[in-house]
Amino acid sequence: MAIAEIQGQSTEDVRPPVRLFRNLNAKIASIPMIMTAVFVFIGCTVWTIVHSFTKSRLLPKLDFVGLDQYERLWGTRRWLVSIENLAIYGICSLVLSLVIGFTLAALLDRKIRFENTFRTILLYPFALSFIVTGLVWQWILNPDFGIQSVVRGWGWESFTFDPLYNPDIVIFGILIAGIWQGSGFIMVVMLAGLRGIDEEIWKAARVDGIPTWKTYIFVVIPMMRPVFVTALVLITSGIVKVYDLVVAQTSGGPGIASEVPAKYVYDKMFQAQNLGQGFAASTMMLLSVVIILIPWAYLEFGGKKRG
């Protein structure tokens, strides 16, 4: 919109000023930000990618070995397990956060009593760090003190619920904690979106006799597309960097069953003193983000030029 307006004005001028000097103050003011972006983000990224082709150990050295680090990476079981865990955690967390967040928001939006109280309670977990969340859920899910022992105490002796000690389902134990922490925030974002829907829409739907659930699914949700996009970006960025939750809850165990890529990167870089391997792994993480991000950015922002 803004760009279109400025362009509209400039065509009216007799001699359009040089594009570079237009709005000069703003451009000068943004130089520090541009420098930060170029040097910190792009510069460091390039540096990391270049060093991922070297055999750097504790200290970065430009001693190139081609694709060796990548070959080793994809031949390592721990990395493959990490990728698989991230995929399971990512898909489940994305779907559940959106569904739970939207459902809670829709319920709160029905003009219930004590809305403020409920909103606070549901948002509260978000105020806790992942480390605290992880520790709390580690205790809750511990078979000796947590849910399992409470239920057994009620007399159901054979009850078993120990996700953190079962390699097959441990990632879901982490997922529970992640959802508990994050869905309240998504709910608030959704609620803000729902409040932005014009009351007239609801009235029109009611006049036409459309059931409430249908109004939500076919009218309200399509209207809330920008809110969903925001929520999506917030959730995905949380998924890719999941690390502290795993460290606090299981530190990757039992065995290597709950390892995640970010932890692989950290462990290789700082504990195994193999920077090259850590850089290769982080480059793969970047690549996966780029593969998802570029088509999305193209769809989201590329279309505007035509309009």
């Binding site: 065995g255 462990d267 195994a272 193999n274």
Partner: peptide
């Protein structure tokens, strides 16, 4: 053993002992 090799053996062993 270098820290790197030690790390690789640890990864293998912790997996083996737990699975």
């Amino acid at each position: 053993l270098s820290a790197d090799t030690t790390g690789q053996i640890e990864d293998l062993m912790v997996e083996f002992w737990n699975d």
